[in-house]
């Protein structure tokens, strides 16, 4: 039996970003779904004007949504900056212009379709399918930020946020459609998260690469040098 070797993959900045991103999206999703459909009513029998601070109100939940929105924006900018600075943090780019991208994409798809078993195929720190998915998720997050701050800013159409993101409201056909798009893409992000968690755990079980712990300590484990390791050098 060959020994596993340890490879340093994820920078500390990336790991910190990942968990801040995770937390803010969870908070945004929970509060956002409530905003879209306030299914429980927490303040019956209390004077509307006095209810703030007494129980969980729509006002408070929206405030939490917006605070988490600001955090998401800040962490997204941070994420883009570290990708610019360090090649190590650029693994989310699908290199569609390379032939390996397509051949390895085929391999991964066959593995997930259970045509091949998990020990076949080349070793990779990040397969092309994952890269494509992450790339799309970054776009989805950006979309949520733009539409979110667009709606948020339009309470003052000549204010700061509206001047930056207000255009999105009109390019989506008005403010109501913008709300709906924001709502639909929120669900898409959650669907991604479910599949993402499953595939990470699956990778860990089938290949014992330490996939789950890598986002905490930064290391993955392989017996041979993975094919795309040279990207990190």
């Amino acid at each position: 039996m060959k020994e596993y070797k340890r490879f340093y993959i994820f920078s500390p900045s990336l790991r910190i970003w990942h968990w801040i991103n995770f937390l803010s999206i969870m908070v945004l999703f929970a509060t956002g779904i409530y905003i879209g459909n306030p299914f429980f009513i927490g303040s019956q029998g209390v004077e509307a004007a006095l209810v703030h601070g007494q129980s969980l109100t729509m006002g408070l939940i929206r405030e939490v949504h917006f605070i988490a929105g600001y955090i998401l924006l800040a962490s997204f900018i941070f994420r883009m900056l570290i990708a610019l600075i360090d090649g190590r943090d650029r693994l989310f780019i699908p290199k569609v212009w390379k032939s390996e991208f397509w051949s390895r994409l085929g391999e991964t798809l066959q593995e997930y379709a259970l045509v091949k078993d998990s020990s076949e195929g080349s070793l990779q720190i990040r397969n092309p399918l994952a890269r494509t998915a992450y790339f799309l998720v970054y776009i989805a997050i950006l979309f949520m930020i733009i539409t979110g701050f667009g709606m948020y800013g339009m309470s003052d159409p000549s204010g700061f946020w509206a001047s930056i993101f207000g255009w999105v409201v009109w390019s989506l056909g008005g403010e109501f459609p913008t709300h709906m798009w924001h709502h639909w893409v929120a669900w898409l992000i959650i669907l991604f998260a479910i599949v993402h968690v499953y595939l990470v755990i699956r990778e860990d079980f089938t290949k014992k690469t330490g996939e789950v712990s890598s986002m905490f300590n930064g290391y993955k484990f392989f017996k041979k040098e993975p094919a795309d390791l040279k990207e990190l050098k």
Binding site: P38, I41, G42, S43, Q44, V46, A48, A49, V51, H52, L56, T57, M58, G59, I61, M154, S155, P157, S158, E175
Partner: peptide
Amino acid sequence: YGNRIHDTCYRRAFFNAGQF
């Protein structure tokens, strides 16, 4: 047309309170 109805609505206090 510089305001949303929602931002000038007299029922807004009920919205913020979560009373629907």
